[in-house]
Design a protein around this nucleic acid. Structure first.
Lengths: 171, 171
DNA sequence: GACAAAGTATATCGGATCGATATAAAATTG
DNA sequence: CAATTTTATATCGATCCGATATACTTTGTC
């Protein structure tokens, strides 16, 4: 999904700054959808020029440098059009698995190291998902739970698969 | 993993053309690593300029326009260096899940359609994995089986998760 | 209260990547 | 033997990402 659609979609939940959008995307769908500042700010700039979003009156007492945007009516219909048009893709890209495919070129110690690191990272993310201390309230809890649950299921499968099959990579 | 490392890694299994490299990557690690022609050909050109690969004598009787490359000694050590240095990332990016996160904006029919399409695509890929009629012999069968097995496990988990939880998205 | 550290926030740049497209020869199929 | 598909290289523009620069605000702590 391109950054423009993602920004519009997140703005459909409520007004936000570029910084807010990045935090929301990370909290909601990290690993499934995300964008860096280098994508978000140019996207917001384009959307603004196209009249799909508009700046809001900044909260008077707040800080001066926050730029809060609101989706316009044109933006909302364009968003719906893009969401209906796109053939949504589903990609799993992993440098780790690519590295394992070339495992004949690296030392067994390195293989052990990168696998253990990945297992630890996934386990800690699973724990964080089970104890959600996230300050962000998802606007659509059902969708958020659906996506988070799938992430957990995939992580659990991956961890189990590594435990059962990593011996295949011994050489 | 950048295209240069991927090309070098695949060339470490044997001489190949750009076209061969793309086919190999698709067959071996589609969904986990891949590259389009727009990445492969520029990468090969750069690697050639850096002396990390070299052209081979084209097979005399064959077609004239195939350009077969071989990894050089410098290329092999550079490859090993890159594989040892990279902190391998592990990304799951899915436009489908992003769309589902915005499911309040699209019709239930559209949700049903995209989920059913994805389920069918994964089921057919699973069937293809179980009946491998691939003409390509993977140079390292253990690594290839490891990666293919993980893909199957992840697809099965995803299919099951959709079956059990898609009702969460009804609205 | 002074000062450092961490967090918040916007923005840009260059390199990398991807999808679309152009071209054309060889193999296959009807 | 004509039409289609597959093989094969290559480039272009749009986009994307990571790194970086900048600067203000909050927090913590001595």
């Amino acid at each position: 999904m391109d950054a423009k659609t993602l920004c519009l979609g997140l703005l459909s939940f409520g007004d936000a700054s570029g910084y807010d959008l990045k935090k929301h995307a990370e909290s909601a769908g990290d690993h499934f959808f995300a964008a860096g500042f280098g994508s978000i700010y140019p996207a917001l700039s384009t959307l603004l020029n196209q009249g799909l979003i508009e700046p809001t009156a900044k909260s008077s007492g707040g800080r001066q440098d926050r730029k809060i945007y609101r989706i316009t009516a044109a933006g909302r219909s364009e968003l719906i059009r893009m969401l209906s048009m796109d053939e949504p893709r589903h990609l799993l890209r992993s440098d780790l698995f690519a590295l394992l495919y070339f495992s004949h070129l690296v030392t067994p110690e390195r293989i052990t190291q990168v696998i253990d690191e990945r297992l630890a990272a996934m386990a800690s993310e699973l724990a964080a998902t089970r104890n959600p201390d996230s300050p962000l309230k998802h606007p659509h809890p059902a969708s958020a739970r659906f996506v988070a649950g799938l992430k957990s299921a995939l992580f659990e499968t991956t961890i189990q698969y590594f435990r059962e099959n990593r011996a295949l990579l011994d050489h």
